[in-house]
Amino acid sequence: MTQRIALLAVLGLALMASLTAGKVWIGPADWFADTAGGWIMADLRLPRALLGASIGAVLGLSGAVLQGYLRNPLADPTVVGVSSSAALGGVVAILLGLSGVTMFAFAMAGAGFSVALLVALAGRSGGPLGFILAGMVLATVSGALTALLISLAPNPFATSEIIAWLMGALTDRTMDDAARALPFMAAGGALLLLTGRALDALTLGEDAARSLGINPDRLQWLIALGTGLAVGASVAVTGVVGFVGLIVPHFVRQFVGERPSATLIPSALGGAILTLVADSLVRLIPGPGEVRLGIAMSAIGAPFFFLLLARIRGRAA
């Protein structure tokens, strides 16, 4: 409980940082005023902060759920193909010249298609092994199709637009974007939060989990659907942001222990914090444009993860 309160406090600070970070300083007095500062706050920074927190939360949560389900600390939403399938849908939309709600719908359709294929390929009672194998097939096929579409793009501008979108960013997102994505992320997150006790039981293996009353088919559906809705919506609105789902659960285990259900909410809070901080930092880097969030996350995440691994290995030795 203490850890959750601490994480909530840090999340509050990260939200404040996200609302204040940018090329223009807006004092608190102007936040709700009918001025240019107030408009920037209401139309740009608030939706950006809301989306950053939500996207980070669902990526952290889905990473914790997938690592618990697959009993593998290397799992994250990219491993099971949902991110790449949603990205493929988004790329198709860009090539068709679509944007806004139709592009969102295409990306969600990609995520939905991946969920259906994931469950079909993993099979009834296929278990975590079938799930991860099916996910890797999906991720590989989606990645290959995305690369094919990029190579078939009609002009360099389209290629550039696709690549920039795939890198992930929260730049210029609006309240309309937030209104479209948040219900899906909330629904997916709620489904993922239902998995806690089943993930705890699965720690003992599939047979022991079933003997404790866990229905493996239901669990697989919950995870596929929850990840599809939450991660699909996050990719649809920002592109692919990596590393959050991988590293945040590792970090929170240092404080809350390794019981999977204990890592879910802290991973959601930690993911929100990490994404907000990274998105604030990209706005403070001087230059003509912003560094893409996906790039910043990898630049922050990779060394951080390396240090964490070194520390864990040092403790185990």
């Binding site: 705890d200 003992l204 022991a208 003997s211 019981r259």
Partner: peptide
Amino acid sequence: PQNGQPAWAMTVRELVELGRL
């Protein structure tokens, strides 16, 4: 079951509490 080595390093009490699920 055979070879029921827990996948995550939970505490002994947390492990035993799973029996109450």
